[in-house]
Design a protein around this nucleic acid. Sequence first.
DNA 1: CAACACATTTTGGTATACCAAATTCATTTA
DNA 2: TAAATGAATTTGGTATACCAAAATGTGTTG
Lengths: 227, 227
Amino acid sequence: MEENLSISIANELRKDILRGRLRPGDAIKERDFAFKMGVSRTPMREAIRLLGNEGLIELRPSRSPIVANQSKQMVADQIRLLVVLENLSAELACKNATEDDLGRIAGIAETMAAQFDSTDAIDMFEIDMSFHLAVVKASHNASLVETYRTYLQRLWRARFLAASLDPNRKRLIREHRAIVDALLKRDPEAVKNAIQNHLGNLFRDVSNALDREAEERKTLTSVGENK
Amino acid sequence: MEENLSISIANELRKDILRGRLRPGDAIKERDFAFKMGVSRTPMREAIRLLGNEGLIELRPSRSPIVANQSKQMVADQIRLLVVLENLSAELACKNATEDDLGRIAGIAETMAAQFDSTDAIDMFEIDMSFHLAVVKASHNASLVETYRTYLQRLWRARFLAASLDPNRKRLIREHRAIVDALLKRDPEAVKNAIQNHLGNLFRDVSNALDREAEERKTLTSVGENK
DNA sequence: CAACACATTTTGGTATACCAAATTCATTTA
DNA sequence: TAAATGAATTTGGTATACCAAAATGTGTTG
């Protein structure tokens, strides 16, 4: 897609949100952000609306938009859907994946295994997410890819917090390899089982991470000034 | 959600698209449509972008946007996903539906049975779609509802064409009743079977309808002027 | 000290103007 | 008659101004 100013602004804001430089609850003041980026309100407004549609920003009447701050119920709902989308992609990828697709997926898994200790946590998490997205792309169902991407982004931060809480590298690499092996065999049941094994406790892990973060925020608030 | 000018314009355009007053391939000329509706380009532009995000309008560089004209592959992809979403909603609705939810779903099915012959095809199709959406809402998973709604709208026209081609009222009412009965029993497998039975041939039916329409368009084009 | 009223600030929304790029159309030439 | 060239039109995108509504802050009064 051809990139205009609003799309490049949206890309930059999205990256800031996913990478944690903009945190849940932070205000995105249209005029301020436009001025800082040296653009007018129009493309900034359009970018904010785009991210609003993607669920990353929450628009509020008569108040500045904020980085979306999702309830545990919303996170649970999205994870429930994400798992179903990954299962569907497993089934379809077994049928439709090209040899290039499978090669790419296996390559990403190898890259993670090889570089885990020498890559910072944020970059490694991005590779992890690109692995999952590559599996979905191997389904060759464009709607599935589009919808999956939406929830991948919405859940990004929560999953990153969960991954940071329990960075079990051996388990991660083993479970990704199980998914790759099952895909290479083009065995849908085996892929689904491997995915279930990999994501089965995702909500619990994410929930724990969000609880932990809420505790930390409460501690900071009680010693700091009340805003 | 509070309705501003762009949202009400988007709602009007969406209704025109779903109801067939704007057809696939029709241009949505920003300046012309804004003038006709007595508004400026800004809310019209925002409304067009909103429908672009929803997949109902296709934006093109340096050309007027057009009503999305989906390939059969895209339709097949979307149907594949829609069925999975309906299956998930069946499972969750069995667990989470309130008695009000079930009453509402049964009520819509009864309304269809009672009013089928006295309601025009477009209105009856809308009731049919509201039945399916009510089942999904009964899942109480907000992300599922949002995603399902997206594909319900994208597939609206193709499904309406298919329904018009083979308006089998008895079958439709019977199959909806089977879904309701299975929901009342809160039997996920029975609901999934009923949905599979109901939607199992959706792609074939839709594909036939799109083929038929393409034939008709070709016939019209060969006797009319080439644009 | 709390509540109320008024002023100020912030904000979303919309209108309009302008620009550059792409497309289309018309004319000319070979 | 077809191709090329130049002019005109259409179009998306962006900047800026303005307005009304909502939120916030401040001062006064009871």
